[in-house]
Nucleic acid binder design. Structure first.
Length: 272
DNA sequence: AGTACGCCCTGGCCGC
DNA sequence: TGCGGCCAGGGCGTAC
């Protein structure tokens, strides 16, 4: 389940291989992947011959900037991007749905077991408006005041953190881990958070995302980086999928509830 | 505006 | 060993 840290790990690994390289062939073999626009023939034609100017990330989206347009890749739940120095080095099982072959060798495969991911083109100049994503939690502008402004509503705090239009990049794992670190119960109305809690939550969100990147992502389902290496951050999860175990902070048994149709893990002892 | 629910999809796991 | 059923949940659409 690639969230902000996993996509950032992928971005950092791919950028040196992709930036400045020209796409000589694009193969898209799964209709669902290109469901948003034109279908895969259109998309393949549009990217072939283009040079990848930059590899960026916005929230959970990876962006390959190709001059005036950008190829947006969203990995869904099980999407993987795998790099190989030559076409023959790529995996070729039935879950590989797209391949980009680069000038001078080098190839990128998109593999996605559950096909929740997608790719589509957007004008590079309109990325920010068209993606309709909220603030990046790791930029300096994500201040306590910015978080406070988002929390002026009655929604429960966890579904708010998962809402990509408000904050971009937080998914189920990092939401649960951040709320645990901040000592805030996921069911709390956002508008009920006190000043000290908003401060703690802002720090917790940033810390947990940075730790996720530092440990190269959480490999719960099948996440791995473009070289096939899994991340190590799951070893450091404190509540996510730890129901029934003792809280590392207070010893109370970790609970699991359903919140907004999502499995939600927290400590009833120290998350108020 | 909020909340709930179903859908997409596959593999892993459970119980029988 | 096999098979049905459930679960995982990101994002979207729809309904209330």
């Amino acid at each position: 389940m690639p969230e902000l840290p996993e996509v950032e790990v992928i971005r950092r690994a791919l950028a040196p291989h992709l930036e400045g390289r020209r796409i000589v062939r694009a193969e898209l073999t799964e209709r669902r992947l290109t469901r948003r626009d034109g279908g895969f023939a259109t998309l393949a034609r549009a990217v072939t011959g283009r040079t990848i100017r930059a590899v960026r990330r916005r929230g959970k989206h990876l962006l390959l900037v190709l001059g005036e347009r950008a190829l947006v890749i969203r990995l869904g739940m099980t999407g993987q991007l795998l790099w190989a120095d030559c076409e023959a080095g790529l995996p070729c099982d039935r879950h590989v749905h797209a391949r980009l072959l680069l000038e001078g060798g080098g190839a990128l495969a998109y593999r996605d077991i559950r096909k929740f991911g997608e790719m589509f083109l957007l004008p590079a100049a309109e990325l920010d408006t068209r993606l309709r994503l909220g603030i990046e939690p790791l930029v300096p502008g994500f201040t306590v005041d910015a978080l406070r402004a988002l929390c002026r509503r009655s929604t429960k705090i966890k579904p708010l953190l998962l809402d990509q239009r408000r904050v971009a990049g937080i998914g189920n794992i990092y939401a649960d881990e951040a709320l645990f670190r901040a000592g805030i119960r996921p069911t709390r109305p956002a508008s009920s958070l006190r000043a000290d809690e908003l401060t703690a939550l802002r720090e917790a969100i940033r810390d947990v995302l940075k730790a996720g990147i530092r440990h190269r992502g959480s490999s719960i389902a099948n996440f791995c980086d473009p070289h096939g290496r899994p991340g190590r951050f799951a070893e450091r999860h404190q509540v996510y999928r730890k129901q029934g175990q003792r809280c590392p902070r207070c010893g109370v048994t970790i609970a699991r509830i359903l919140l907004g149709q999502r499995g939600t893990h927290f400590c009833p002892g120290c998350q108020a």
